[in-house]
Structures are given as structure tokens and as C-alpha cells.
């Protein structure tokens, strides 16, 4: 257990070095589908945060009782329950949003991010670390899909959070809010992140680690 990352490390790792969407390429389905505007992207992030946090905490609590060959069933059961709760909750309090997101809320169940975090982190580490990991990963997920959503919404409709930001003369790039825009934006974003990583890797390692350590102190 000594070489397991601490809570702070887990938290930081989720945001960029191990960003679930951009680095591990997990959870691409919502990253492409619900990013036509910022509001749905943020609602999705909220739902993922809730499900991932609850699933991670519960898995971590029962980690010593888990039988290895039954663990996937337990994970699936836990995730599906919390997804149902999130879905019902949205339907009750944010009805229009739940209609817009449609099947993509239940599809969180098969979102690889969550089952991967349960497997990699929560089934091995304490509740506190698992919780921090869930929050870090969700923030990373949220940042990635918000970046895509911001580009798509601004270029596609000239709005940001439904507030006009571009001059009225802007010809809306309708294709950005349609499916092809999602693929193009995401492809370019992956390229950008990879380019940034290669540039950063050429600098001394000390510089890269410093921000993480200063925040941990």
C-alpha cells in the first residue's frame, strides 16, 4: 500500500496529467454528445460527479468484503443505482434539461471512467482518497467537456451560456452544434493537448512537479 498515491496526488492527477477524457480517452460518448452548449455540459458534469463520488465511496467502504470475481457485478449494481437516482432527480427538478440530455444520463452507467476509477482506485484505497480521486477526475472531465462545449457554443451560435458574446454580424457556424462539429473540435483539442504535453516533457521535470507539491503543502 506504501506506493499508492495520496489523496492530493489523486486529486491533482485527475485534473490534467491523467485527465479522463483527454489523456485516457474514456467517456468519449458524453464528451461528444452533450457538448453543444455549456448548460448541458455542466449538468452532465454534475451528474458524473455525483455518480462517481457515490460509487467510489461505496466501493471503498466495502473494499475488504469484495470477492474478486464478483467485483464487476457489485460495481455495475452500485453505478446503475446512482445513475437512476441522478436521472430521477433531474427529471424532477430540471425537467427540460433531462429531456435535452435524454439517453445520455443513463449511458453514464457504461461510461468507462467510473468503472475504471472503482477498479483502479476505490477498490484499493481508503474512503478519503477515493472521494478525492472522484472529485479530481470529475473536475478533469468537466474541464475537458466544458472546453469543447465553449468552443462549440460560441462558434455555433455566437452565445456563451445563452448570452450573446459575438457581434450580431457573426455568421453562426451551424455545423459546430451538429455532430460533425463535435468530432472536429474534439480531434483538434486532443491534438492541442498532445502537443502541449510534448512541449512540456522537453522541459526539466522539477518544473512540472512543483505546482503539485506546493498545493499539497
Amino acid at each position: 500500500m506504501a506506493d499508492q498515491p495520496t489523496a492530493t496526488e489523486r486529486f491533482i492527477q485527475g485534473i490534467l496529467p491523467e485527465n479522463p477524457v483527454l489523456r485516457q480517452l474514456l467517456g468519449l460518448c458524453p464528451a461528444l454528445a452533450v457538448t453543444a452548449n455549456m448548460k448541458s455540459a455542466l449538468t452532465m458534469t454534475g451528474a458524473v460527479l455525483f455518480v462517481l463520488f457515490c460509487a467510489n465511496v461505496i466501493t471503498s467502504l466495502i473494499r475488504n468484503l469484495l470477492k474478486p470475481h464478483l467485483r464487476i457485478v457489485v460495481f455495475t449494481l452500485t453505478i446503475a443505482t446512482f445513475v437512476t437516482i441522478a436521472d430521477r432527480f433531474l427529471a424532477a427538478y430540471l425537467y427540460q434539461m433531462s429531456k435535452t440530455l435524454g439517453p445520455y444520463i443513463p449511458l453514464i452507467i457504461v461510461n468507462c471512467i467510473i468503472i475504471c476509477r472503482c477498479e483502479v482506485c476505490a477498490s484499493k484505497q481508503s474512503v478519503f482518497v477515493a472521494g478525492a480521486d472522484a472529485i479530481g477526475q470529475s473536475i478533469g472531465f468537466g474541464l475537458a467537456i466544458s472546453a469543447i462545449a465553449a468552443v462549440r457554443e460560441i462558434l455555433g451560435t455566437g452565445n456563451f451560456f445563452d448570452i450573446p458574446v459575438l457581434p450580431a454580424a457573426w455568421p453562426d457556424w451551424v455545423v459546430m452544434v451538429l455532430p460533425p462539429g463535435a468530432f472536429l473540435t474534439f480531434g483538434l483539442l486532443i491534438g492541442l493537448v498532445n502537443w502541449y504535453e510534448t512541449v512540456r516533457a522537453q522541459r526539466p521535470v522539477r518544473e512540472v512537479l512543483e505546482p503539485a507539491q506546493s498545493e499539497g503543502a
Binding site: 464478483l70 449494481l77 443505482t81
Partner: peptide
């Protein structure tokens, strides 16, 4: 464990 969890989650839902 699976059974206990299933019952708990069923109650929750």
C-alpha cells in the same frame, strides 16, 4: 454482499 447491496439499493430506489 451482492444480495445485501441489492436489497439496500432497492430500498433506496
Amino acid at each position: 454482499l451482492v444480495l445485501v447491496l441489492a436489497i439496500c439499493f432497492g430500498g433506496l430506489l
